[in-house]
Design a protein around this nucleic acid. Structure first.
Length: 554
RNA sequence: GCCCCCGUAGCUCAGGGGAUAGAGCACAGGAUUCCUAAUCCUGGUGUCGCACGUUCGAAUCGUGCCGGGGGCACCA
């Protein structure tokens, strides 16, 4: 609808130019069609005259009048007004809104989808937690945001691939293997010195125990290097399996699991460095190899190969992002913990140096989650082994509530996740408010069936009977859903969907209390059931974008 | 010291150039012979952290402060 309104306004402007009333025919960049806060200001409002005024040296209201006059002829509107400093307020005819419900019902589960994204190939990389321990709540937030964003982008017509980058190479992998091996030796009765930098968690002991069970004392005879390597492989395997299981119970899946080891093994890291070197962006200093990232806006140059010969993680990250571009992705969305924000300029620098467009990379920095319990912040450190796992939280508050809490805030705002509250307050959680709206509509249809009321074919339903103010508001809200999805995708902001759904649910609950879907008036009942069907569909589609279930009963 | 994010109602947070700044929670009162009361209705609160600036117009943009968090390794 909004697009139709925009088109009408811009055509009216063109007609002004055609008949000589105004000089400009082209719509200005800042032209916005918005939904006013106050209903007295119409269904839609255009600021076109305000934007044009300064450029044309005319009074905004004068321009607005000229355009408004030509808009009145449109079949779309029942009334067009100039108001305030020069807004054009437009009132859409009720028949236009009423027809929308048929479109919505016809589209079904596809309603909300659009081709706004134009098939742009986008890679959404998220979670990518190091396989050194189980996922904690912070990873859960990233998982919810990434998975939901991928769903929203798909709905908005982007060609989406999701990926988890597995850091299964490098120093910390040795540390992980060493940690397990030391616990293994402890289990064999040795007294070992367990260093602080090793992973302290209980899960390390469990992995050691399972190795002991399956391999016996065999590892003792292998020599430290081989034994640690063995432990590393086993630990990564077990931890990754655990991570996958946790994500699975959070209903988060990935198209690809991308292993860092394969980057090294295939020579792609060396290749990327060669390319940078050929372009003159690398230099040697103090025995190390540096990338001149300052040439692309970073605050200091970065080491890609240390003086001891080891490649840094950054070197692999360069190759990884090059590989993403080589695979043809036009838009790269990386979802990182906010503590990695310092990393953004150097990765963008690498993309630029390799001939890519730094704007093609969008890094969403998800603020860390403060887990609160009994009014106190709980410590979160994988290495120290002090953290609340995602699994533990899911077991307590449930998948739907957890996802909704994560998705009802902008991802760059800090989030206090109060365990006590989420646990005991589950009845007041907004997710149930939305789900209940869906369940209630389902129950209306159950009731209708009980009473032998069945819906007529859509064509035969008289939608002009939907003339209550509340019905009109719901129709407008339902109509805006595809626009909300498209904007949410464009802005990479899943939380807009949660807010939309909460607002829609409020309208539906209010309507439910005040009016009856099923009444003695057979024609009216048909029209209202159609409204109910469309509304239920939109709630369901919206919840699906969040990865939250839409129960039929509660 | 430098960089990034945040600061909006008692609390948790939306709004991120547009008209009189919103929601949930909490608090008080009310609503159910009838499609699920996990619901609805009513009640009120804001120096939008502070100060300048940009313009027709600023919670929103810019600069500087203040406060909170995070980051500034040849760690990941």
């Amino acid at each position: 609808m909004r697009n139709r309104v925009r088109q009408a306004v811009e055509e009216a402007l063109a007609r002004c130019a055609a008949d000589g009333a105004l000089e400009e025919a082209a719509p200005p960049d800042g032209h916005q069609i918005s939904v006013p806060k106050h209903e007295a200001h119409g269904d839609f409002s255009s600021n076109i005259a305000l934007v044009l005024a300064s450029r044309m040296g005319k009074k905004p209201r004068e321009i607005a009048e000229l355009i408004a006059q030509r808009l009145e002829a449109s079949q779309l509107f029942s009334k067009v007004e100039v108001a305030g400093p020069g807004f054009i307020n437009m009132f859409v005819r009720s028949e236009v809104w009423q027809e929308a419900i048929k479109r919505i019902v016809a589209a079904g589960s596809a309603y909300g989808c659009s081709n706004a994204g134009g098939g742009v190939k986008v890679l959404v990389e998220f979670v990518s937690a190091n396989p050194t321990g189980p996922l904690h709540v912070g990873h859960g937030r990233g998982a919810a945001v990434g998975d939901s964003l991928a769903r929203i982008l798909r709905a908005a017509g982007y060609d989406v691939t999701t990926e988890y980058y597995v850091n299964d190479a490098g120093n910390q992998m040795r540390t992980l293997g060493l940690s397990v091996f030391l616990r293994y030796r402890e289990l064999l009765g040795e007294t070992v010195d367990f260093p602080d930098h090793c992973y302290q968690g209980e899960y390390i002991k469990e992995i050691a125990a399972s190795i002991l069970e399956e391999e016996g004392e065999r590892l003792r005879g292998l020599g430290e290097e081989a034994a640690v390597a063995f432990c590393t492989d086993r630990a990564v395997e077990e931890i990754l399996a655990g991570i996958k299981a946790d994500l699975d119970s959070f209903d988060v899946g990935f198209d690809n699991w991308f292993s860092e080891r394969t980057l090294h093994a295939s020579g792609k890291v060396e290749q990327a460095l060669e390319e940078l070197k050929a372009a003159g962006h690398l230099y040697e200093q103090d025995g190390a190899l540096w990338f001149r990232s300052t040439a692309f806006g970073d605050e200091k140059d970065r080491v890609v190969r240390r003086s001891n010969g080891d490649l840094t993680y950054f070197a692999a990250d360069i190759a990884y992002h090059k590989d993403k571009l080589d695979r043809g992705f036009e838009l790269l969305v990386d979802i990182w913990g906010a503590d990695h924000h310092g990393y953004v300029p150097r990765v963008k620098a690498a993309i630029s140096a390799l001939g890519g467009r730094p704007q093609s990379l969008h890094v969403l920095l998800v603020q860390l989650v403060n887990l609160m319990e009994a009014g106190e912040k709980k410590a979160m450190s994988t290495r120290a082994g002090e953290f609340v796992t995602l699994k533990a939280v899911l077991d307590e508050v449930g998948r739907d509530a957890a996802r909704f809490i994560f998705l009802t805030r902008k991802c760059d705002s800090h989030l206090d996740f109060d365990l006590d509250l989420a646990r005991q307050q589950s009845q007041e959680n907004p997710v149930y408010y939305v789900q209940y709206a869906h369940a209630r509509l389902c129950s209306v249809f159950r009731k209708a069936r009980e009473q032998g009321v069945s819906m007529k074919p859509v064509d035969e339903i008289d939608t002009s009977l939907l003339k209550e103010k509340e019905e009109m508001e719901i129709l407008q809200k339902l109509d805006s859903f595809p626009f909300v999805v498209a904007e949410s995708a464009k802005a990479l902001e899943p939380h807009r969907i949660s807010f939309y759904l909460t607002e829609l649910a409020a309208m539906l609950h209010g309507y439910y209390t005040k009016f009856r879907f099923i009444s003695g008036d057979a024609e009216l009942t048909q029209a209202r059931l159609l409204l109910a069907q469309g509304a239920r569909q939109v709630v369901q589609n919206g919840l699906h974008l969040l990865g939250v279930s839409a129960p039929e009963t509660m």
